[in-house]
């Protein structure tokens, strides 16, 4: 009896290893647990992209469910998702706010001028559709870092109290919207606004 249990030990170990490795086949090494989930949008004071006289703070997320879309004209996937985002805005009245940052506009050695960026943005939005209520210009890419972004496009689903409830890395297409984002979006629409003190 003792001999049998001792012999089966390596077999049990082997089976456990197989299960572990098999699970590894389907895990996504790029899937990171976002730290921003269930935390309020970080503090910022940033200008509007197209009219720098206007300044925004996290107050803009109060009272409305918003999808904050991190994007740039240099980002190809962003261009691809623009028509679908525009469709969502028109058909379901989803509120999109852009967090725009430019790659060439190096905070240390600025290369591209602001009028040039604005021209490029306008051209792109006319060509592919404009889902945005407005665009926040993250000049030094500080807010992007505070949000914990890894690239573009990325989306943050923000509830009526200005708290991030879902961080989606990558584009929004019909499949992503139906399976991942819309269910959360619909529940957030039902939620009342909570009063909470900012940290």
């Amino acid at each position: 009896m003792k001999k049998v249990s001792l012999l089966s030990l390596p077999l049990i170990g082997f089976c456990l290893l197989i299960v572990f490795l098999y699970k590894g086949l389907f895990s996504d090494p790029r899937a990171l647990e976002s730290q921003i989930n269930n935390r309020p949008v970080p503090e910022f004071t940033l200008p509007d992209l197209l009219n720098t006289d206007i300044t925004y703070t996290p107050e803009v997320f109060k009272n409305k469910v918003t999808i904050l879309n991190v994007w740039g004209v240099w980002c190809i996937t962003c261009a691809i998702e623009l028509p679908y985002l525009t469709h969502l805005k028109e058909s379901e009245n989803v509120r999109f706010v852009g967090l725009y940052f430019d790659q060439d506009l190096d905070p240390d050695f600025g290369e591209k001028s602001l009028p040039q960026i604005q021209r490029e943005v306008k051209t792109m939005l006319t060509k592919y559709g404009n889902p945005y209520e407005f665009n926040i210009f993250d000049i030094a890419r500080e807010t992007a870092l505070d949000l914990g972004i890894t690239g573009a496009p990325e989306h943050f689903l923000i509830d009526k109290s200005g708290v991030v409830r879902l961080h989606h890395i990558g584009d929004i297409n019909e499949r992503v919207w139906k399976n991942k984002i819309e269910p959360v979006y619909q529940t957030l629409l039902q939620e009342p606004e909570r009063r909470l003190g900012r940290e």
């Binding site: 790029r30 990171l32 870092l145 690239g151």
Partner: peptide
């Protein structure tokens, strides 16, 4: 966070630059 398995000193990704 973008080019996994690279440290930020090595990576040329924008996010690594910012970091």
């Amino acid at each position: 966070p973008m080019c996994q398995n690279q440290n930020i000193a090595d990576s040329d990704a924008m996010i690594a630059q910012d970091m």
